[in-house]
Design a protein around this nucleic acid. Sequence first.
DNA 1: TCGAACTTCGAACCACGGTTCAATTGTAAG
DNA 2: CTTACAATTGAACCGTGGTTCGAAGTTCGA
Lengths: 203, 203
Amino acid sequence: MVRSSNERSRRRRDAQRDLILRAAARLFRDRGVADTGMREIAAAADLSPANLYYYFKGKDEILFYCQDRALDSMLAAVAGAKRGRGSVAARLDGVLRTHVSTLLGEVDGASAHLLVDALPPPLRVRIVAKRDRYERAVRGLVAAGVRSGEFATASPALVTRAMLGALNMTVLWFRPDGAASATDVGRELAQYLVRGLHIHSAA
Amino acid sequence: MVRSSNERSRRRRDAQRDLILRAAARLFRDRGVADTGMREIAAAADLSPANLYYYFKGKDEILFYCQDRALDSMLAAVAGAKRGRGSVAARLDGVLRTHVSTLLGEVDGASAHLLVDALPPPLRVRIVAKRDRYERAVRGLVAAGVRSGEFATASPALVTRAMLGALNMTVLWFRPDGAASATDVGRELAQYLVRGLHIHSAA
DNA sequence: TCGAACTTCGAACCACGGTTCAATTGTAAG
DNA sequence: CTTACAATTGAACCGTGGTTCGAAGTTCGA
């Protein structure tokens, strides 16, 4: 039966691609994109360097899919938050926590925003476009809070970049074997970053 | 007179080193460290690639001095703030603004914290040590605010990293020809980041 | 002017890492 | 068993970019 054979091989192929992407994402997060070689990725995924090129066109494409996956996860979170019904603060808090989980988690590809410029133009524009869409969505959430009177901010765009920047930098110092878990870090950071938006009377 | 000759040549040498470091810092900030070649640095500093090796041992050393200079500038600011007499919030605000100015300014070397891992161990440990000293100083300022009752934070260490992270990420999106100047960005970011520390009653 | 140093440079070197390729093994249908 | 295709691999290729080298140019005191 030809059909089941194609189905099976396609599934195997996808599983291997997924395995490679996970291994690559982990290395990218731990040692940095530039300092991670194809030979290291191959070793981590238990196959030969040459075999990587049967599944991906090259290192660029691997990095591309890592970032693409991570962004999809974040976009889903922010899309859900947009439809939510709680306070804007609570919804934004959830988005930020998901952001950290995606970045630091083992499952999805990390190093999302960092080193986007390492990609060649064709792939870069696609990632940048998606990243901008995400940033705009988060900014929209902040702006919504301002409109509703929950938040007070002179420049939502700048503040949004500050929030995402603080979150993205976690990949540079976070260590899984540390005292704080990824969830802990996300909770604390989100709390602090959202607090800065709230209307308040200084003591 | 031998003395004046040595003096003069030493001064010329230092001036050239400074010129090279400025050019390199600018390129590092604009195009990234990995994507900046020695040939580009040489072109920007108006001398041949080979001549760079008369002034520096290699690319690593150039990057090292860029980061070292930037950290000195930041350390000076935080040291001054520690001796200051105003509110902790005001002093911290000043430190953060200086941080942004140093990072985004034309004078000092940018790309301070980013890509520290690009250095070989011998140089890296020195930079990391100085960077940690700076981070500890900022964290001390935050802790001082908590002790004095100005601030309320569960984890000063985490919040400090968040602040510095938000600041450091500016080098990835800031453009000198944009609407907001480096000073503007520094002011807005510092305001937001310090606000998150303040004791407040949510609306 | 002379000479010894400081400074500069063109050209080549060479290692590293992404990539390619021909050939081998594994798999499943006929 | 055979055949066709998927999967895998060792070995080599090769462009990029940091680096080195020997010589030529420049400065400055004597």
